[in-house]
Design a protein around this nucleic acid. Structure first.
Length: 1104
RNA sequence: GGGCGGUUAGCUCAGUGGUAGAGCGGCUGGUUUACACCCAGUAGGUCGGGGGUUCGAAACCCUCACCGCCCACCA
């Protein structure tokens, strides 16, 4: 790749060698086994040899060696097996079954990594976990694959073999070639219970599908009906919709004149692209509101070919703007026409044969012609008769056959249909389903509390209470509610997380209906604004002056106790669009809306709006589907490509599982793929398993199959009631549905085989390890949004695993880890306190993100903590103690490392199961053989003791770290190479800082560090003003001009900041209306800037 | 046509009302007793345009533009 341009030379220095190769002007460093000699240097000599109990960490982490080993160990120990008899709380997922013919794609990696994370995390939380794997035969895909294989190996087709034999071959094929993807999932580390693996062609499963078919037929829900199918006139087979490629095609629009039967001088003109099907016309149609033709409706016209009178009808489906606004109705050869024909009870006349030729003896000129030749001919005939007024070019989408590459022919065929059961219920329950099973509590303004396990129960109780008491709440916010506000804790994510808990407060009950507000507050984690203690979200809907408002209020509670509100009110207009409406703050803060009402539906709305991970638009999407709902065509003529067999047309039909006897032939139709998949969530489980694990905890899938699969599984659950009770909540197959995004390439295109833009995950794993791939992908995968794939991100995942490995290695070099993980909080250094406090924050933040299924946030947070807080800062600062000669300090630093490493490894385990288990075991944390992290509980926050002490320590560490950053910057500005020791001085009157000078020196790579209250800098020193005081870099050579320029720049920046801050403080609107804490913060900022500015100006003046 | 989502640094993306962030890439310096798959520093952004609400908007509302997805239609 790179041209070697320069010389290769070797430098030897100290105890390691480095190759430096100059490549096309870039530098590349090839590292040669550094420190081979040194590996044991720092291990304390132990006479008892105890350190050997912990195997030394190899210098390089080799995921390809380590990962498969761990997978084998997990399998051998049965770690993934789900025990239906277990007393632990259940957690279950059914895998969206990949096609048996499939290969692992990045989409699978994303999807299954998420499931694995959820499963492993649930195990760590003490759940009995069932992750049920399996594969789908997916009809066409498998058929095609097996057919190809048969052609190649035995040179037979499926028709020759017959159905029974062919199905046997499918099994053969599956045993030999299918299910590669399962092995690939294992490579990824998926913790499925493989002993329960299912296949949708399994005997039991297929029988269940048949049973369901028979059952629904008996109920009258499955029936036979005519429907348009996609016919390929060359391949002579029906095609599934996926095999039809809509292609923009240039054609002509023929304007054909239909003569009125009553007034022969009058014609109605029809624009059509298919004049060759005129013989099959059974009517012409106009829009009922089309004034041009209103008088014509009910009259008759002459069909121009195969001349017969046909009616003029009116139908809403006609687009008056297209062509002449008149449509010829040809039910046998067009989907829309078929529907119109059905509505108007018109017959269907078929004038096309199987192979796409005209079959119409009544018009001998066209009979037997190919459809395209017939089109020309028909136009010609019409022109001769003066019935073709004009033609014009036209472009439209024509469906082309994927197989033969010719336009498909829509044609009528008998198909099996399912009238959807339980659709309405599904919509209703899905709304509640999103929030069911979480413990919720409603509190009235009088303090009356309602308890219930789901919103529906609560609603009932609340409504009953409201009716009984005619109670009017005093205000949205009053003393009482403020009080509750402090009681209520936990963000929405917590409410809806698995942990549950009584976190919702619905307040206030009104006459007639209820007015509801939902309070919640975020944890005080990671606040964008450090002054804010909690952020409270408040959702409500109410009516005011006859208008319905929906309000979202965001209230911030500051540390000083003040609460500040932010709110918007939204009026829902009739058209479904929203209009903006603002309420004066006072109305919400201090006065109740006089006639506020909230219907039960709005309560649902408000709650649903709050469920962010379960997309709020789900309802709308689902409602949209409901509008378009039709009966489900469950058969597809794809297996054999036959037309309707003669036996069916006049014969007897018997729907049952087993053949009634000798003279019966099985219907050759195959069922729609989804017809077997909709039972997946429960037919894969036996009765005992179902009792324990159904409904499942979560379904992880891409959003594109909501209609095909997710919605149908819900309907199946409601219809067949596999749950433990008859209640809907116990039968909807999953509690949460998490929609992943689609993975696209860097240009934003969908991954596809034809574009060749889909990287092979196995290659990625070979390059970066399964853990690297998993972590890299999760870190860039925002929930529900499409992901642009970039291999760089995977590389980062690998780098992160290596980083983790190396910091563990560093720890291990200083002796074995403590197994007990006991930390004495009184002996902790301030750096340890800061680190442990950050760890606590990280635990809280990741918990919160998990609750919202924000895996990218979890990954990013852990990445930052490990790399930044732990490696870059704590370990570097801790080296003072670790390399120092005070054994107590050293032990404390190492113990802190142990504690935090063990926490990190646990926190990361769901994302990177292999490397974490490897470290857990290698570092000696594992108590015994097979002590897998899957079954180790996640660490609780560390109790750091007295709050003020912690705050002081943290403030000091932050001051030190920022001093380090400033000092390093001074060094770089002074062009002092980072490996050269530098001399620093700090002008500050801070005795505690002196105690930290060793660490400060180390982090600054200082030769010397003077800390004095009245330090007088020698000439040539450069200076920067920081919170601690003034930091000087002492230099031998003075660069006055450079220093002046640098100071000018820094002064200018501070001046700008100060100006902005002062302007704000001078604004009386700000000081009066902004919360006190914010104002105070600005004042502090102003003071700090003023001080630093003065110091810098003085330094600047001394240079003149 | 209906619905939904997106637009923040060169790239991939975080950021739910209080001083614009990360990683990669760029540039500078670097083997510093874990890590060159690394370390330190640094440049780079009128947060798609316009309007509104607010003391304060990348964030909330409206609107326009562009990109994308789903559903329907394409005579």
């Amino acid at each position: 790749m790179w041209q070697v341009r320069g010389d290769v030379f070797i430098r030897k220095r100290q105890r390691c060698a480095t190759f430096r190769v100059v490549l096309s002007g870039r530098k590349a460093w090839h590292h040669q086994s550094r420190r081979v000699i040194k590996d044991n240097d720092n291990l304390p000599a132990r006479t008892d040899g105890s350190y050997k109990a912990v195997a030394e960490l190899p210098k390089n982490y080799d995921p390809n060696g380590v990962e498969p080993q761990w997978y084998q160990r997990w399998l051998a120990a049965g770690a993934f097996r789900a025990d239906a008899k277990s007393a632990k709380p259940p957690f279950s997922i059914v895998i969206p079954p990949p096609n048996v013919t499939g290969m692992l794609t990045l989409g699978h990696v994303l999807n299954n990594t998420i499931q694995d994370i959820l499963a492993r995390r649930a195990r760590m939380r003490g759940c009995e976990v069932l992750w049920l794997p399996g594969m789908d035969h997916a009809g066409v895909a498998t058929q095609t694959a097996v057919e190809k294989w048969l052609r190649k190996n035995e040179n037979v087709g499926r028709r020759e073999l017959g159905r029974e034999e062919f199905i046997r071959r499918v099994w053969d094929w599956k045993e030999k070639h299918g299910g590669i993807i399962i092995e690939q999932l294992k490579r990824l580390g998926c913790s499925c219970d493989w002993s329960r693996e299912r296949f949708t062609l399994d005997d039991g499963y297929s029988r269940a599908v048949q049973r369901v078919f028979v059952e629904l037929h008996k109920k009258g829900l499955i029936y036979r009906g005519r429907r348009m199918i996609n016919w390929d006139p060359v391949a002579l087979t029906a095609l599934s919709d996926e095999e039809v490629i809509p292609t923009p095609t240039k054609s002509a629009l023929y304007y054909v004149r239909y003569q009125s039967t009553e007034r022969p001088e009058e014609y109605l003109e029809v624009a059509t692209t298919r004049p060759e099907t005129i013989m099959a016309d059974v009517a012409i149609a106009v829009h009922p509101a089309d004034e041009r033709y209103q008088t014509r409706v009910g009259q008759k016209v002459w069909r121009p070919l195969a001349r017969e009178p046909i009616p003029v009808i009116a139908d809403e489906a006609i687009d008056p703007k297209f062509g002449t606004g008149i449509l010829k109705v040809t039910p046998a050869h067009d989907q829309l026409d078929f529907e119109i024909g059905t509505r108007h009870k018109l017959p269907a006349i078929d004038v096309l044969s199987d192979d796409g030729r005209i079959s119409c003896p009544a018009v001998p000129e066209l009979h037997g012609l190919d459809r395209f030749a017939a089109r020309e001919k028909a136009a010609e005939i019409l022109r001769e008769r003066g019935l073709l007024s004009k033609t014009e070019p036209h472009e439209s989408n024509v469906g082309f056959s994927e197989r033969a590459g010719v336009p498909i022919e829509p044609r009528l065929s008998e198909q099996w249909f399912l009238h959807y059961p339980k659709t309405r219920e599904a919509l209703r329950v899905v709304q509640w389903g999103a929030i069911s099973r979480r413990r919720v509590q409603v509190v009235s303004a009088t303090g009356h509390e309602f308890h219930g396990s789901n919103m529906r129960e609560l609603r009932k109780a609340a409504v009953a209470y409201a009716r009984r008491h005619q109670f009017l709440g005093s205000s949205f916010v009053n003393e009482e509610t403020k009080l509750r506000l402090r009681v209520g804790r936990g963000s929405l994510s917590h409410i809806f997380s698995n942990r549950g808990g009584a976190n919702i407060r619905a307040i206030a009950v009104l006459p007639e209906l209820i007015r509801t507000a939902i309070w919640t507050s975020t944890q005080p984690h990671d606040p964008p604004n450090p002054l804010v203690k909690h952020v409270h979200h408040f959702l409500a809907a109410f009516s005011l002056g006859g208008e319905l408002y929906r309000v979202q209020v965001i209230a911030k509670e500051f540390h000083d106790g003040t609460i500040y509100y932010d709110h918007k009110a939204k009026k829902r207009a009739r058209g479904g669009k929203s209009l903006e409406a603002h309420l004066p703050r006072e109305k919400l803060d201090t006065q109740p809306a006089p006639n506020a009402t909230l219907s039960v539906n709005e309560l649902t709305d408000a709650v649903n709006a709050a469920i962010r991970f379960f997309p709020a638009h789900w309802e709308k999407v689902y409602a949209q589907w409901l509008e378009n709902i039709r009966d489900w065509c469950i058969s597809r003529q794809v297996w054999w490509g036959h037309r309707i067999p003669a036996w069916y047309r006049g014969g007897e039909m018997c729907v049952q599982i087993d053949s009634p006897g000798e003279n019966w032939v099985q219907d050759p139709d195959t069922l729609d793929t989804w017809f077997s998949s909709w039972l997946w969530a429960f037919e894969t489980m036996d009765a005992e398993t179902r009792a324990k694990f159904y409904p499942t905890s979560v379904l992880v899938t891409a959003a594109d199959i909501i209609f095909f699969w997710v919605a149908r599984m819900i309907i199946a659950g409601l219809e067949f009631k596999p749950g433990t009770s008859q209640r809907d909540e116990d039968n909807i197959p999953f509690r949460d549905v998490f929609f992943t995004g689609l993975i696209r390439d860097k240009q934003g295109r969908k991954m596809s085989k034809s574009l060749g833009n889909s990287p092979d995950p196995l290659e990625l794993m070979a390059k970066y390890g399964a853990d690297g791939l998993r972590f890299g992908l999760m870190r860039m995968a925002p929930s529900g949004q499409d992901i642009r794939f970039d291999e760089k991100q995977i590389e980062e995942g690998r780098n992160f695993a290596t980083k983790l490995w190396n910091v563990a290695r560093f720890r291990q070099m200083h002796g074995p880890s403590q197994r007990e993980l006991q930390l004495n909080s009184n002996e902790l250094s301030i750096y340890a306190i800061e680190l442990l406090a950050r760890l606590n924050e990280t635990i809280a933040a990741t918990e919160a993100s998990y609750g919202e299924y924000q895996f990218n946030a979890v990954a990013q947070r852990l990445y930052d903590f490990v790399w930044g807080d732990f490696c870059d800062w704590f370990v570097e600062a801790g080296k003072t103690d670790i390399f120092g000669d005070d054994p107590a300090r050293k032990n404390s630093a190492l113990a802190t490392m142990d504690y935090v490493l063990s926490a990190i490894v646990r926190l990361l385990h769901p994302f990177m199961p292999h490397v974490t288990d490897e470290l857990w075991s290698r570092l000696g944390f594992a108590a015994r053989e097979n002590d897998f992290l899957d079954f180790v509980s996640i660490l609780q926050p560390f109790d750091l003791g007295e709050k003020s002490r912690v705050q002081t320590a943290r403030a000091r560490v932050r001051a030190i770290y920022s001093a380090v950053e400033v000092g390093r910057n001074l060094r770089a500005e002074a062009r002092l190479p980072s490996n050269r020791k530098a001399r620093y001085a700090l002008r500050a009157d801070l005795p505690w800082a002196r105690e930290q000078s060793a660490t400060l020196s180390r982090l600054l790579n200082a030769e010397s560090l003077v800390i004095e209250p009245h330090f007088q800098p020698p000439p040539g020193a450069s200076v920067s003003a920081i919170t601690l005081g003034e930091l000087f870099l002492l230099r031998d050579e003075s660069d006055r001009a450079g220093e002046i320029e640098r100071l000018n720049k820094e002064i200018a920046k501070l001046e700008t900041d100060l100006k902005g801050t002062e302007a704000k403080l001078a604004n009386s609107a700000f000081t009066q209306r902004a919360p006190a804490a914010v104002v105070e913060e600005h004042q502090r900022r102003r003071d700090d800037l003023t001080t630093r500015l003065a110091q810098l100006r003085q330094a600047r003046a001394s240079l003149d």
